[in-house]
Design a protein around this nucleic acid. Structure first.
Length: 615
RNA sequence: GCGCCCGUAGCUCAGCUGGAUAGAGCACCGGAUUUCUAAUCCGGCGGUCCCAGGUUCAAGUCCUGGCGGGCGCGCCA
């Protein structure tokens, strides 16, 4: 029998909606997290309706091609909700853009209802009648709730994601956070858009390092506490091995022999040790995943592909693209540029390499899922590796090769340099989460000492801060790990978004009480949402933001959106009152507040950050 | 040496498929709470968008060449 992690598999699509719209798990650590938005029915998002109306009017009036109608958002919200730069029409109509704009203004106003066109220089700006905008957007949010922002654009499409992928026997460092958190957010946004997703944790449980580890356990296993704190113990052995390896040929050989035995399939002592190391590591990893609210559809270590390796190599050989070089089996890739080094499939000693196992995995995933995209959420330091993988497939003539994408991200660095497990220069993820939760607890003690569920909220805020911080910049950018930044709860941070949500929730609680006093439910007066149209416009564009974030596999587009929504909303709250107004006014403003709250919940859910009602 | 990625305010970053006066947060200075959570808000300070060419009606955004930083480059993963 080949080793597998069958017992560790998680239910598929854990975060997908149930058909009845029931909420998800109500117990366990994940219950503190909001649910990611469920799939919506195929109604166009609210802003889209207005855009379509403007686009249709422009086409009808000018005969311009649909693709040429590029509607933008004016920089200054007071200029309008939508903008059309008239430059594209200049050639065709043989007129100056400002003239085109002013000529079109009246004609478009005749065609449009509820939307006013106004020419400003070469631009045509469109303002949606405020109460129409409000009732449309807020009505749709209220109707769709958790599903708002979602769509069925991905129906029938399958996205496979390779994410997290920690190495067995090493503690998860803050470096591993990135793949996990970025990958999980990309998966959730796809789920929201109706894609079928398969999140695979490609555990690093194979390779020569395990030979080294087994050798180290053999030699020094009884000097460390393997049962009590297995990961730290294994780390110590790993570090020690690398320290002593150079001056100790016997040790080096023992490591090599152990891996060779491992890969030979012999079910002996080496394999038993390896199996044990895998088991205790996965138990530790699960603790972190629970805190992060991340689960996988498949946990498949590299070892899983052991049985596929020979067939994979045979396949590549059969394609006639391999050759022997210095005793190793390689695929030359120089046709893709002289700087592209060959891909090694088999070492001189007959054992396989990382690339061999990834190729086996790629074929396996294709055969299993026939994916539309296969995303590898792996650090940018492996760009060459994935380029080589794709080139090998290309040389084989595999037509689905373009569907594989390396979703690279920048390195997490320490101020003193690159992290290195071997050198013991790492920050452990668990420690970061603990620190953040402790810090959040301190802030609560200061600001809201009577808070119920204080420990749970502190965990939500602390972990939320860490997760959000990792998602907030464009993923290709390197990040330097600075404690002060990670533990910051002010400004552009996760807790800022959570806090905004809590404030809104508080207003809604009080508003519900106020409304309960009334004899009959008031009809909202949508015309009284002073200065809210820019925010309403943002709410209406939520689906477009998610769609783009999915397409680009870029969670930072969602964090950026959430932050700007919060900033606008906090400003609005400072300027306008919700409670204690005429009933029709309060009703409209409560609906507005609830709309923002819902979108924040949905956005945070996708990001994997909790949305506490009080904090 | 070669290749890939990044380069916007003192620091960390936004800037949508090229479009209107380049925006936030942190830091610093000043202000706001008898009423919806001050983990907030308002104001001030702060920019040769790395440099040089080019394409375009229009360039932070596209192209070329430099410079600076990061990462990687056959038997690790």
């Amino acid at each position: 029998m080949r080793p597998r992690f069958e017992s560790l598999r998680f239910p598929k699509n854990w975060n997908s909606p149930t058909k009845t719209g029931k909420t998800g798990p109500s117990t366990g650590a994940r219950s503190i997290l909001p649910l990611a938005p469920t799939r919506a029915t195929a109604t166009p998002s609210s802003m889209q309706q207005f855009q379509d109306a403007v686009r249709d009017a422009l086409i009808a009036e000018t005969g311009i091609a649909q693709e040429a109608v590029r509607l933008e958002t004016p920089r200054d919200p007071s200029m309008g909700d939508l903008a059309f730069p008239c430059f594209v029409l200049a050639k065709e109509l043989k007129a100056a853009p400002p003239k085109i704009a002013s000529d079109l203004e009246g004609k478009l106003n005749d065609r449009l209802q509820g939307i006013t066109a106004k020419a400003t220089g070469p631009f045509l700006n469109f303002t949606i009648e405020p109460s129409l905008l409000a009732s449309t957007v807020l009505g749709q949010i209220q109707e769709q709730g958790q599903a708002y922002g979602g769509s069925d654009e991905g129906a029938g499409k399958t996205i496979v994601l390779d994410l997290s992928s920690p190495n067995i026997a090493k503690p998860m460092s803050v470096g591993h956070l990135r793949s996990t958190v970025i990958g999980a957010a990309i998966q959730r946004v796809h789920n929201t858009l109706g894609y079928t997703t398969v999140g695979i944790n490609h555990i690093g449980d194979w390779g020569s390092q395990f030979g080294k580890l087994v050798a180290a356990v053999d030699r020094w296993g009884d000097t460390v506490d393997l049962e009590g704190d297995p990961i730290k113990a294994l780390l110590a052995l790993y570090v020690r091995y690398h320290e002593e390896e150079e001056g100790d040929p016997e040790l080096k050989q023992a490591g090599r022999d152990a891996f060779k035995e491992l890969e030979s399939g012999e079910d002996g002592r080496v394999r038993a040790t390896w199996r044990h190391l895998t088991k205790i590591s996965l138990v530790e990893f699960d603790k972190i995943y629970t805190r992060l609210g991340v689960e996988f559809d498949e946990v498949r270590g590299e070892a899983y592909y052991e049985s596929h390796l020979n067939a994979t190599i045979d396949r590549i050989v059969a394609a006639g693209i391999t050759e022997e070089s210095e005793g190793a089996l390689i695929v030359r890739l120089s046709e893709f540029g002289k700087e592209v080094p060959p891909c090694l499939l088999r070492k001189t000693d007959g054992t396989t390499l990382y690339a061999t196992r990834d190729l086996a995995a790629a074929f396996h995933r294709w055969e299993l899922y026939g994916f539309d995209r296969s995303l590898y959420v792996v650090g940018g330091d492996q760009r060459l590796h994935f380029r080589q993988l794709k080139h090998v497939l290309e040389r084989m003539g595999v037509d689905w090769e373009p569907r594989m994408e390396h979703i690279d991200f920048g390195m997490m660095r320490l101020p003193e340099g690159k992290m290195s497990t071997r050198k013991g220069r790492v920050i452990f993820l668990e420690e970061v989460l603990d620190q953040a939760a402790a810090e959040a607890d301190k802030v609560i003690a200061e600001k809201n000492p009577g808070l119920e569920d204080r420990a749970a909220v502190a965990e939500m805020v602390g972990v939320g801060a860490v997760v959000f911080n990792d998602l907030k910049r464009e993923r290709v950018k390197d990040v330097e790990f600075v404690w002060e930044e990670v533990l910051s709860f002010e400004g552009d941070t996760g807790p800022y978004v959570q806090y905004t949500h809590a404030r809104l929730a508080s207003i809604l609680r009080k508003g519900a009480a106020e409304q309960a006093e009334l004899d009959s439910p008031p009809t909202p007066d949508w015309g009284t949402l002073n200065g809210a149209s820019a925010i309403l416009g943002k709410l209406g564009r939520f689906n477009a933001v998610l769609s783009r974030a999915a397409r680009n596999a870029e969670p930072s587009e969602i964090t950026t959106y959430a932050l700007s929504l919060c900033r606008d909303t906090n400003t609005w709250i400072g300027a306008e009152r919700v409670l204690g107004q005429a009933p029709a006014v309060t009703a409209a403003r409560l609906a507005f507040v609830d709309g923002v709250r819902q979108v924040l919940v949905n956005a945070l859910g996708i990001l994997g950050v909790g949305a506490p009602a009080r904090m």
